[in-house]
Design a protein around this nucleic acid. Structure first.
Length: 292
DNA sequence: CTTCGTTCCTGTACGC
DNA sequence: TGCGTACAGGAACGAA
């Protein structure tokens, strides 16, 4: 399940393998993969054909390729199971191949493979970034906040935004308009590190607690990035098809009934937002109404 | 305006 | 063996 560290691993791979190369043709094999590109597959392919890739960028879980048209980007979101793979152009088609791009040099091709089809690609317009001077951002994601690894992320502004909200801290961490790049896995890990329960009301958070949450997010993401990201199955891989190793370092996520690494209490699993939340009942006690 | 439940999709695991 | 169900879950969308 790609979150920020996994997307960053993919971005770095693309930077190595496609920068400077010219796209020859783009084939859409499944229209759902470009459903956010409202002009359709023909327009998507036509906008990208002949363009030379000039660089790569990322914000949160979105990554994009810049091209020799400064107003255009190839924007990608991997969803739950999306993969961007670089490989020999004559290899067999993957079962869930959705989009394929070839290059004029006849070398390695670029494939978007996505089993569960929650991911998508689009050819998007680039506009000036409201958060970082001199930077550009694709229009469809201009509304999301910077991610916590960006210089443009505003820690104090994040604290004030949380205090204005009336929701639980985990829901806020998953809200890409407040902080981008955090998904279910790293939200649970960051809250475990910060010693906060997922349902803690955001309006009661203290400044030191928010500092702990942000430190937790940044530290766990940096640690995951250092080992190539988190993989539970074969669905997350880098551009060469290799998995990361961070699942061996997770403290809370997926560890139901296993002992907490700090206190030994069995990790608890709750259903929240129709998905799993893992926490330590002792290190992350459930908040009581009226306590704060 | 904010908040929150629903929906999209496919493959795997598991109980009976 | 096969069938039904739970689960994995990001984010757009609509309702309240």
């Amino acid at each position: 399940m790609p979150e920020l560290p996994e997307v960053e691993v993919v971005r770095r791979g693309l930077a190595d393998w496609v920068t400077g190369r010219t796209i020859e043709s783009v084939t859409v094999l499944h229209p759902r993969a470009i459903r956010r590109h409202v002009a359709g597959p023909g327009d998507f392919a036509a906008r990208l054909a002949g363009r030379t890739v000039t660089g790569t960028a990322r914000r949160g879980k979105y990554l994009w390729l810049t091209v020799d048209d400064p107003a255009l980007a190839l924007l990608a979101h991997l969803g739950m199971s999306g993969q961007l793979l670089v490989g020999e152009p004559d290899r067999p088609r993957e079962k869930h191949l959705r989009v394929r791009a070839t290059f004029t040099d006849g070398g390695l091709d670029l494939r978007f493979v996505d089993q569960r089809t929650f991911g998508h690609l689009m050819a998007a317009e680039l506009v000036p970034d409201a958060f970082e001077a001199a930077a550009s951002v694709p229009v469809p994601i201009a509304h999301i906040a910077p991610d916590p690894l960006e210089d443009a992320f505003d820690d104090e502004g994040f604290y004030r935004a949380l205090r204005r909200r009336h929701t639980g801290v985990k829901r806020a961490l998953l809200d890409q308009s407040l902080i981008s790049g955090v998904g279910n896995i790293y939200a649970d890990e960051a809250l475990w590190r910060a010693g906060l329960h997922w349902a803690r009301p955001t309006e009661t958070l203290t400044r030191p607690e928010v500092v702990r949450v942000l430190r937790g997010v940044r530290e766990v993401m940096a640690a995951a990035l250092a080992v190539g990201g988190t993989s539970f199955d074969s669905l997350y891989v880098n551009v060469n098809g290799d998995s990361g190793y961070f699942d061996r370092s997770l403290e809370a996520y997926g560890r139901r009934d296993e002992p907490c690494g700090r206190c030994g209490t069995p990790i608890r699993r709750d259903v929240f937002m129709n998905r799993s939340s893992y926490s330590c009942p002792r290190c992350q006690p459930r908040p009581r109404r009226g306590v704060f």
